[in-house]
């Protein structure tokens, strides 16, 4: 029987996006380090209209250490996007302490505990997702668009209305000057995600630039058809603060 780690704070058992996250949670629990799973989402990119188009949800928050931890079991060559997001978060929220735990770190950690085989099992491009569970009361079910790498877009989180701890507002020294952002609405839709994906590798080579233009055109077309019905009429911008994620955060 799989024993799912329980967060230190009150609240439901989190639905871990990736088995490696569950394993790290077990390790933290074992060493009596309090943790919360994906308690906050930090917007990191906005449109000119102030809509959040990209955000970052660190996997863990360790309240006693005031530290966010992002775990990735992706191969080193595939973590460029995550590194970029992390740099962006540090620019915008310089007071937020965050550490990225790479696949190698995770592997070495499990090696130390004599669990290297488990590290191999959990690492890679996808890893093994934790088995589905029946949602706990108040807990979100699996989030649409959740990638298992903790970098789901803002719209993949729905507002839970819980009084969550709020991390600092973005620093004015950041190179983005967000005006306003309704992080909870549908701006991070699949279409927006497609836009971001198109930007990720476009522009480095002529072929990449052409491919990027084609992808962006397709994504814009998808966005036009997708955005209108997903924006609730009269939805008021809520500001640029990190957004408590739905359900996964213990109350």
């Amino acid at each position: 029987m799989i024993e799912e780690p329980v967060p230190s704070s009150r609240g439901p058992r989190p639905a871990f996006a990736h088995a490696s996250e569950a394993e790290l949670a077990r390790i933290l629990t074992y060493y009596d380090v309090r943790w919360e799973y994906e308690p906050d989402t930090f917007p990191i990119s906005w449109t000119l209209d102030g809509e959040v188009v990209e955000s970052f949800s660190p996997d863990f928050y360790l309240p006693d250490l005031d530290l966010y931890v992002e775990l990735t079991t992706l191969k080193q060559s595939l973590v460029r996007k995550k590194n970029r997001k992390l740099r962006r978060l540090r620019e915008l929220y310089p007071d937020v302490r965050i550490k990225l735990f790479y696949a190698r770190d995770f592997r070495m950690l499990l090696l130390k505990f004599g669990r290297l085989a488990l590290a191999e099992e959990l690492s890679g491009t996808t890893g093994q997702a934790t088995p589905p569970r029946a949602p706990s009361p108040g807990a979100a079910s699996a989030l649409p668009g959740a990638s298992g790498t903790g970098d789901a877009s803002a719209a993949s989180r729905s507002p839970d209305g819980a009084a969550g701890r709020r991390a600092p507002e973005p620093s004015s020294t950041g190179d983005a000057a967000p005006a306003a952002g309704e992080a909870d609405d549908a701006v991070g839709s699949a279409a927006s995600a497609a836009l971001l994906a198109a930007d990720a590798d476009a522009g480095r080579t002529p072929r990449g630039r052409r491919r990027g233009r084609r992808r962006r055109a397709a994504a814009r077309s998808a966005a036009q058809s997708a955005e209108a019905p997903t924006h609730p009429a009269g939805a008021a911008p809520r500001g640029q603060g990190p957004v408590p994620s739905a359900g996964t955060r213990p109350a």
Partner: peptide, 14 residues
């Protein structure tokens, strides 16, 4: 004690 839990057992506390 050192952590040695697996996905199939309860690892408990140090």
């Amino acid at each position: 004690s050192s952590y040695g839990g697996t996905a199939t057992e309860t690892s408990g506390l140090v």
